[in-house]
Structures are given as C-alpha cells and as structure tokens.
Design a protein around this nucleic acid. Structure first.
Lengths: 218, 218
DNA sequence: ATTATCTATAGATCTATAGATAATGC
DNA sequence: ATTATCTATAGATCTATAGATAATGC
C-alpha cells in the first residue's frame, strides 16, 4: 500500500554510503560472523540484492567497510608530532597518551572492529582481517620511527631493538586499555595513560644509562 | 548403511563433555555469534536435539562452556604467591610476567573467548559475557590485593588508589600482549614482560618517593 | 520411570542470483 | 546502453521442539 517505490531516486553513491554505515555499525556490535547481509539490508533499508550489486560479496563489503572506517580513524588519530621545543619528552608523551585514551572512549568503533577481526580465527579468508593486520603493523612501524627520533644516535646504534620494543609496548598497553574500557566503564584511563608515559620515559633512561661504561649482560 | 546406531551407548556425561569441547573450540575460532548448534553438532557428532537436551539453549551451553574452561584456566594461571625471601620484588615480578607471557602463547583459548565476548556488544543477554566480565573483575581484585601486600602500610594509607591502579595497568598490558600475540606471532613476549615488570617497580618507587617530605601536587 | 539419544520437521534466517523496471546519459 | 534499484526465489543453514526408541535403575 502507499506510493509505489520509485527506483533509483538517489544520486550516485549515497546508497553505497548508507550500506557502509549500517554494515559498520553491525560489524561493530557483532563481529564478522554476526554480520549478515540480511541485517544490513534491514538496517539500511536497502535490498539485499542492491548490496550485492554494490559490493559483490560479504567479504567485499566488509573489506570496504574496513578501508572506509580506517580513513576516518586515521585522520583523527595518527598525527605523531615531535615535541615542541621547551617540552620535555615526558610531558609530550603524557599529552599523546592522554589524547589516545580520549579517543578510546570517544570513538572506539574502528579499533574495536579490528580487534574482533583479529581475535576471530577463521583460517584467513577474510580480507578485512588481513587489511586490519596490515594497518596495525603499519601503525607499529610509524610508532617505532617516532621513537627512533627521540633516541640519541648512539643509543639507536647500540640498541636497534629498543625503538620497536617501545613501540610494541606502547601499542600493547593501548590495546589493553582499549579492551578494559570495553569491559568496564569505570576505568581512569587518563591516569593509566600517565603511568604508561612515565614508564616509557623510565625504560628509555634505563636503556640509555645501561650503556654508560658497563657492558650489557645477557 | 552399516550398523544401526545404538542409542545411549555412553555412560553419564561423556557426551556432555564432548559437546563442551566442540563448542569451546568453535566459540574460540568464531566468537559467540559464529557459534551455532549446527556446527557443534557436526563437530561433536552428537545430534542437535541432544545438545538441547543437555543444555537447554545456546545461551546455556555457552555459559557452561565459559564456566568449564575457566576452571581449567584458573588452575593453571592464578596462583599468585608472595616473593620468596631473598628474592627482590623486581625479580619476582619478572618471573610472574614471564609465566603469564608463556601461558598467552601456550593456552590462549579461554582468554581469547572472553575477550571476544567482551568486544561483541549485544545488549547483554549473553550469560557467558556477564560471567566473563565478573571473572575479569574478580581477577583484578586479586591482583590489587597482591599489590597491596607488596606496599608499605604507610604507602597503602597515603595512596589507596595505587594498588588497584597497578593491578589495572598490569591487566591492561597483559590484555594488550595477548591481542598482539594473536595478531602477529613474531613478538618477543618475554622481553615485553620484563619491561612491564621493570615499569611496575619504577611506578611503585616513584609513588613511594613522592611522599617523602613533599606533598603531592594536583 | 527416568535418562539419553536419535530422526523428522516447522519455521526463521541467510547467501546469492535471476529478471523486471525505472532513471540517466548518449 | 548503462546504472541502480526492486521483487521473487532457490537452496543452505539455523534454532528449537515433538515424538520414537533404547538403556538403566527400581
């Protein structure tokens, strides 16, 4: 009943966008396995066959969802700057981590989706999972580069493993804070971010002083 | 074809166990949403109706899976001891975290399942999810208690928030190492565990020395 | 009688495609 | 002609239950 549905009312890819949004929301709530074309169709109001027309397959759709949401996430979260002159490394790190902690609570969607894809263990035929793992490894590389610039050249030469380790320690802790925030709203993420910043400064100093005169043991 | 299936060949709850195992494996690979009675039936070789007879519902089955796997996990992972006399806190922590890192790679199943349940955001009608969150909060409480015993009474009185914070920092980092290990096999978890131990000792000392004469600012 | 299993099946949901149809761009 | 949509539908899979059947424990 009511007006006959007019086909092709929308310009170009407004529908595409609606589908991506609905799929992103559902994948975020339920993971890859819980995301079905049916649910996406119901939420977006666009027929299942149109979804297939746009994306070809569930795998293709989820891959597009990941790319699309990554672009938005990256714009907000990946500006790694050098500390301003006059700012200590410790202060700067506290700022950076505080910002990261804020983004964990304010827009957790992209990272949550990625972590769910990481934990779901299908043999690897999920394109979106592979994409996320690549993004993750890329972010890690950028973090390591940032750390390398904060280290004295002598230290970089003596401990080439240190920058990647600090980067990994960083990412691991942030992943952990992320999961914690999902499990329980009551965490004081700001304080925990400060603890991480202070720990990193300590670890860096520890490594630097180990080299002064003494040969490392092990 | 072949011999007619004999019903009720098995004693008491051997079947129950087979179902739990199959369900645990599948839930581990695919999360709650990806776990279906059909798949469990196929993997365990036990008919769907028998599964319903044993567990009543999918929710009931997954709740049983979580309880059952938690018991096995707890037996291996939750013996928090005091440091032996003559061992420094730092050395002891390194041991503890090294052990935790080993268990992350050696039997990640229970914790992975829990994290997947945590990240999947269904409104909360999943009993297993609630159970895991309670377990998590319980583990956190035990960790905080452990830390409190390592702190001078004066410090406990002055910074009652410190033990829970160290516990949370600990758990967050371990969650993060866990996720990292799932994403990429190449991590040197032992070194990262050492970094965590050293950081905690540093944070504890930092808090202790802050109280010597100076009033904390903020 | 109770316990534990099976087969069969209803009804929902899911993936994917075929084929019709309407708007757009030549 | 191409683009973007819809309805209809096939066939698979899923949840859950009914009802039959066999072993066990009185």
């Amino acid at each position: 009943m009511g007006a006959k549905t007019s086909r092709r009312a929308k310009p170009a890819d407004e529908s595409r966008q609606r589908i991506l949004e609905a799929a992103f929301e559902i994948a975020n709530e339920l993971g890859y396995e819980g995301t079905t074309i049916s649910k996406i169709s119901a939420r977006s109001g666009i027929s299942a066959s149109s979804i297939y027309w746009h994306f070809g397959s569930k795998d293709g759709l989820l891959a597009a969802v990941l790319t699309d949401s990554f672009e938005r996430w990256e714009a907000v979260n990946m500006d790694l700057e050098a500390p301003l002159p006059g700012t200590s490394l410790g202060e700067h790190l506290r700022d950076i981590h505080a910002q990261a902690a804020r983004s964990i609570t304010e827009n957790p969607e992209f990272w949550r989706l990625g972590l769910m894809l990481t934990l779901e263990q299908r043999i690897s035929d999920v394109t979106a999972r592979t994409q996320f793992l690549e993004i993750r490894s890329n972010v890690l590389g950028r973090l390591a580069g940032w750390w390398r610039k904060r280290m004295a050249p002598e230290l970089v030469a003596r401990r080439p493993d240190l920058a990647p380790l600090l980067a990994r320690f960083n990412m691991a802790t942030m992943d952990g804070l992320f999961v914690s925030a999902q499990a329980d709203e009551g965490w004081d993420l700001q304080t925990l971010a400060t603890m991480l910043a202070d720990s990193q400064v300590f670890l860096l100093n520890q490594a630097a002083s180990e080299g002064e005169g003494t040969r490392r043991n092990g």
